[in-house]
Design a binder for these strands. Sequence first.
DNA 1: TGGGCCATCAACCGATCGGTTGATTCGCCG
DNA 2: CGGCGAATCAACCGATCGGTTGATGGCCCA
Lengths: 207, 207
Amino acid sequence: MIRLLIVDDHPIVRDGLHGIFAGDDSFEVVGEAADGPEALVVAVRTRPDVVLMDLRMPKMNGAEVIRRLREQTPGVQVLVLTTFDDDADVLPAMKEGAIGYLLKDTPRAELRNAVLAAARGETVLSSTVAGILTAPQQQQQRLSDRELEVLGLVARGATNRDVATKLFITEATVKTHLLHVFAKLEVNDRAAAVAVAYETGLLKPGG
Amino acid sequence: MIRLLIVDDHPIVRDGLHGIFAGDDSFEVVGEAADGPEALVVAVRTRPDVVLMDLRMPKMNGAEVIRRLREQTPGVQVLVLTTFDDDADVLPAMKEGAIGYLLKDTPRAELRNAVLAAARGETVLSSTVAGILTAPQQQQQRLSDRELEVLGLVARGATNRDVATKLFITEATVKTHLLHVFAKLEVNDRAAAVAVAYETGLLKPGG
DNA sequence: TGGGCCATCAACCGATCGGTTGATTCGCCG
DNA sequence: CGGCGAATCAACCGATCGGTTGATGGCCCA
């Protein structure tokens, strides 16, 4: 009997997950939570074996929730369940010790098997996610804080001079940063750099 | 007894919705579908009163699904149920005749009431969506197909000359289109235009 | 203590872009 | 029928950008 905690901000999704596991003797859903802080509280009380959680939630970022869960509830396995458009969030989540990462369009049977595997301590990755992790890429495209800061301003319409003024540096430095950004993102101009940044999650709508 | 068709590409979400309505005598879930084409097929067979559907789906865009549903199944009410990050899709959906638009984090009870209202032919909008519709904005920023096409190529790193070659027009025309885009999006350069396009959903990650 | 990454700056060049003005054609709506 | 938006093109200009090369200092890790 695997003790399961479900964390998602959508009641509908929680219901769906609950329904999948409730009718199965191998599992017991011991709690639900709608956001990170709530998850932490519920976890200490219910001591789940496996936490099934979405990364995109209000109030606390996914990676931090995972870290704290593992701190306060030793032995818990965190299985991340989210949508495909979180490329950039997968690595931080795995780094904080998530045991696996599944897409929300995973069929029921596969999801069930994944939770069983997670409870046994086995890593489970959906195939597309496995692709992201094994692809020879993201080490290269990781931007420094400063580079991302410059790119963010560019996305908001700043010229090199504007950026220089705002960051108290010279235009020469801004250009250097941008050239590094272009190289890392494998593009040739700022417009494409902005696009790639949105595609990969370096920049996010509404933030 | 309201006949309900559930359309969503995530099995988990379908389960959740199914669970909410299955135990309720006022509703009968007559079918489920994972994408647009499937929804159309299932709808002709099951003749639902209300279709509860996600906008973001593979194979066919949401607005088109709504239009065809209403063509082939007169009297059907389409209630859109999706996440907050689809700003730009709300208006097309309503234009195609969706009776309402709810967010996926809507509580169960409210969702139930919304379906009842939709079945009666009443418009239902979640408050945040109502805000989008009443806000004085989007008429201005609507881009023509051609303008969007140009912007899309720019986002992929094309220079004006590249765009001209690809679309079989001159650079002068490309510049004109882009200037119109800048004016409509209220920006001054292509990088910011790309950013705004992603922010407003004119361009989308992975598509 | 040496190498790497990061941040900073410089000077120069050609290429591209943004802005302006003006014009033609086409199709749709009333 | 007239008007309007969309799409197309032209020529010109100054501003900005992208590319290159090279240099300095700080920091961390091995």
